[in-house]
Design a protein around this nucleic acid. Structure first.
Lengths: 142, 142
DNA sequence: ATTATAATTGGAATAATTCTTGATTGAGAC
DNA sequence: GTCTCAATCAAGAATTATTCCAATTATAAT
């Protein structure tokens, strides 16, 4: 797995509180990693990386932090089939394309001006709270 | 959980072989239940129901049957968040709306003439093999 | 400083699913 | 009909991601 994170990443300023969530040191570091590693890491991926800065952090805490961030709408949880959940700081409405060849997960945006509700025949009165669009396939080599 | 299955459902004819998969008794009964119970049952739901006809079947066999049917494109596996997988005999391209109030899962079709590839900005060369669209929300009472 | 509240930790527990192994079945050859 | 072989099935053990729990630590409020 290739990481694009530079050795000395520009520090990301993280406020003490986001959306009413107290940003403890652990939550800050977990969030920072998601900002830096855009490859949709799993909880365990985050755990391994966060230990560089917080050697005593536990996996349970990473799960707790991720859950708190998800609950407060600061990050999103992404599921592929029955694999480990992955986490993503991109809050815009978007889907994910999972390249079966490389394992890379690409964010997929809607074409401009299009929303999912425009193209689906939803049950009458349906109020959507959450959407998950996952695509799996290959990228043809040209 | 309410079942809409009548007590004496019309028997469904199931061929001996579908898509090259030998339709054993166990696979037939598992498939029959999916045809009859359109509420997207879990493996365990299927297991409990199939025992009426095959009292000696094991849960592992239900999993094996479901996997074989999925592999051969006879049914689809549907995942919601990290819950148990559910299974669905509707093979047309469609999504699922999970009503958080009732727990009911509704199939959601595309508006006529629209396909997902029309509305997404896919990575160049992407060949989609599988799509999963899951919506979660509530249905407003009018 | 004291108290109350919330967060963290490490390990145990859970639950869905998969794996393993041996028994059974069924289709075709004879 | 029965023999053979591969596929399938059954039962329980194993796995794995995740959650829970109880004890400790940190933070905030008074």
């Amino acid at each position: 797995m290739v990481s694009k994170t530079p050795d000395q990443p520009a520090e990301i300023e993280i406020p003490e509180e986001i959306s009413g969530l107290r940003m403890t040191r652990q939550r800050q570091e977990v969030y920072r990693i998601l900002q830096q590693d855009r490859n949709h890491p799993t909880a365990n991926d985050v755990f391994m990386r966060v230990k560089d800065r917080l050697p005593n952090i536990s996996l349970a805490t990473v799960y707790n932090c991720l859950e708190a961030l998800v609950q407060h709408g600061i990050i999103r949880q992404v599921n592929f089939e029955r694999e480990s959940s992955r986490y993503c700081p991109n809050l815009s409405e978007h889907g994910h394309f999972h390249d079966a060849t490389t394992g890379i997960i690409h964010d997929v945006d809607f074409k401009p001006g299009i929303s999912l509700a425009d193209v689906l025949q939803l049950p009458p009165g349906a109020l959507i709270e959450d959407v998950e669009i996952t695509l799996r396939g290959k990228i043809a080599v040209s």
